[in-house]
C-alpha cells in the first residue's frame, strides 16, 4: 500500500440552519490512496474527537454509491473531480500529497444546512410526493408479461430511473434548479406504457411543486449532467419540457380532487 499523503482541508462548519457558518482549516495526515474520501474524513474526525473537538458532520450510508445520502462539494465540484462518481466512491488516489481541498455542503435555498456538510433535502421527497409515481394499487395485478415494453424504451426508462436523488444536480446548477432530478422521474415514468395514463397530471403537479420549493429555472447550462454521479443526460429535461407542453394543450384529469372526494 502506498500511503502517507498529507493534505490541507478547508471545511465549512455551521452549527445549524439559524447560525452563520465559516470555513475552517484542518490537516489530514498519513492518508492512504486506497481510502475513500469519506474514510479520509473519518480519520480526521477520529482525531478531532480525541482532541475533544466536535467532529465534522456529514451524511453517508451505503458507501457504495447507490443510496444518495452523501454529497459534498469538493474544490467547487459536487462529488469531486471524478465523473460519474459519488463522494463515497471517490478515492484518495484522485489527490496528491500536499493538496489543499476545499470542502462545502450543497448550496441551495431549497436545501437548508442542518449542520456542517449535512443538508435537508426533504424538498425532493415533496416533489416525488406530488405525483412521481404510478397510481397502481398495492396488491395483485395482471400478469407482468401482459404489458409488453419495447426493450429500447425499457432501457431508456432505466437510464432515467438510475437517479439516486443525491441533489448534486442542484448543487452544480448556477440557478439551483432541480430540473434534472425532476425530469429523471418524469422521463422514467413517461417512457413506460404503465406511466402514460397519468403523464399530464404528473408533469404539471411535479413542476409546480418544484417551483414552489424555491428551486431555480433551467437555462440549459448543463452543469447538472456533468456533476451527476449516475451520468443522467439533460435529454431528460428536454423530455420533461415536451411532456409539460403536451399537458398544457390538453385538459388535465382532476385526479387529485377525485381521490380526495
Amino acid at each position: 500500500m502506498s500511503g502517507g499523503m498529507n493534505l490541507n482541508l478547508i471545511v465549512w462548519r455551521q452549527e445549524n440552519a439559524g447560525e452563520p457558518g465559516r470555513m475552517m482549516p484542518y490537516k489530514a495526515e498519513n492518508i492512504s490512496q486506497d481510502m475513500s474520501f469519506l474514510e479520509m474524513l473519518d480519520v480526521v474526525n477520529e482525531r478531532l474527537i480525541n482532541e475533544g473537538k466536535r467532529p465534522i458532520e456529514f451524511d453517508s450510508d451505503c458507501r457504495e454509491g447507490i443510496c444518495g445520502a452523501c454529497g459534498i462539494v469538493i474544490n467547487g465540484q459536487p462529488h469531486g473531480p471524478k465523473r460519474g462518481c459519488t463522494t463515497c466512491q471517490l478515492h484518495m488516489r484522485s489527490f496528491k500529497h500536499g493538496d489543499t481541498i476545499v470542502i462545502e455542503p450543497w448550496r441551495s435555498r431549497a436545501f437548508p444546512v442542518i449542520r456542517d456538510l449535512v443538508v435537508d433535502r426533504a424538498s425532493f421527497d415533496r416533489i416525488i410526493q406530488a405525483g412521481g409515481y404510478i397510481s397502481a394499487k398495492t396488491g395483485s395485478h395482471a400478469d407482468a408479461n401482459a404489458i409488453l415494453v419495447p426493450k429500447d424504451d425499457s432501457d431508456k426508462a432505466m437510464d432515467a430511473a438510475a437517479c439516486i436523488g443525491c441533489g448534486a444536480c442542484v448543487a452544480a446548477c448556477p440557478n439551483a434548479s432541480a430540473s434534472l432530478f425532476t425530469s429523471a422521474k418524469i422521463s422514467h415514468l413517461a417512457l413506460l406504457q404503465q406511466g402514460k395514463a397519468e403523464a399530464k397530471a404528473r408533469v404539471t403537479r411535479m413542476i409546480e411543486r418544484m417551483d414552489l420549493e424555491g428551486f431555480g429555472n433551467c437555462t440549459n447550462i448543463g452543469e447538472c449532467e456533468s456533476a451527476c454521479p449516475k451520468e443522467i443526460s439533460i435529454d431528460m429535461i428536454a423530455r420533461m419540457k415536451r411532456e409539460y407542453l403536451k399537458a398544457m394543450f390538453a385538459p388535465i384529469p382532476q385526479q387529485k380532487a377525485d381521490a380526495a372526494g
Binding site: I134, V149, K151, S154, A161, L192
Partner: peptide, 22 residues
C-alpha cells in the same frame, strides 16, 4: 409471482428481451 406483477404495474423498469417480455 404476485410481486413481479405488482412491481411492473408500478413502473419498475425490469430488464426486458427484444420481444418486450421480461
Amino acid at each position: 409471482v404476485n410481486i413481479i406483477d405488482q412491481c411492473v404495474a408500478q413502473g419498475v423498469p425490469f430488464a426486458r428481451e427484444y420481444s418486450g417480455e421480461l
